[in-house]
């Protein structure tokens, strides 16, 4: 079944690297959108939900942790799977963001295999 993806990261380069790594992982998305921060992401989601959102943590305007809380308030996005992608890897942060509604966490540096492992459960 075709899935939609939203990549949220303030670095355009990192968004491209994430897309490249997903291609290398063999995962296939019907649509892929990008947002540079949490506010932009919410604007994109207001036009329609996505199946999977990959989200950085440290971003200007609205951080990834704030974004998770906002997305979980949107009834349209209750089925959206949120995977955080960050250099931050403290267990406290991971536990907190999972408690707020994220579905997984990928730490940078990452590999195609890591994306395959974390996203595959949500692809069917």
């Amino acid at each position: 079944m075709s899935k939609s993806l939203l990549i949220v990261d303030d670095s355009a380069t990192m968004r491209k690297i994430v897309m490249r790594t997903i291609r290398m992982s063999g995962l296939d998305f019907e649509t892929t959108e990008e947002a540079g921060n949490g506010v932009e992401a919410l604007e994109k989601l207001s036009a329609g939900p996505v199946d999977i959102m990959l989200c950085d943590v440290n971003m200007p305007e609205m951080s990834g942790t704030e974004l998770v809380k906002e997305v979980r308030k949107l009834s349209d996005c209750e089925n959206t799977k949120i995977i955080m992608v960050s250099t931050e890897s403290s267990q406290e942060l991971i536990d907190g963001v999972i408690a707020d509604g994220a579905n997984g966490f990928i730490t940078k540096p990452f590999t195609p295999e890591k994306f395959q492992e974390k996203l595959s459960p949500f692809m069917n």
Binding site: I17, N58, M59, T87, S89, S90, K108
Partner: peptide
């Protein structure tokens, strides 16, 4: 910038035991 961000993330992880949690900027 991403190189700095990722290297800092790795440094932070390796220093966690001796320096505790470090708050990192953009």
């Amino acid at each position: 910038g991403e190189i700095c961000n990722m290297v800092m993330g790795s440094v932070k992880k390796r220093l966690a035991e001796s320096a505790g949690n470090l708050e990192v900027s953009i």
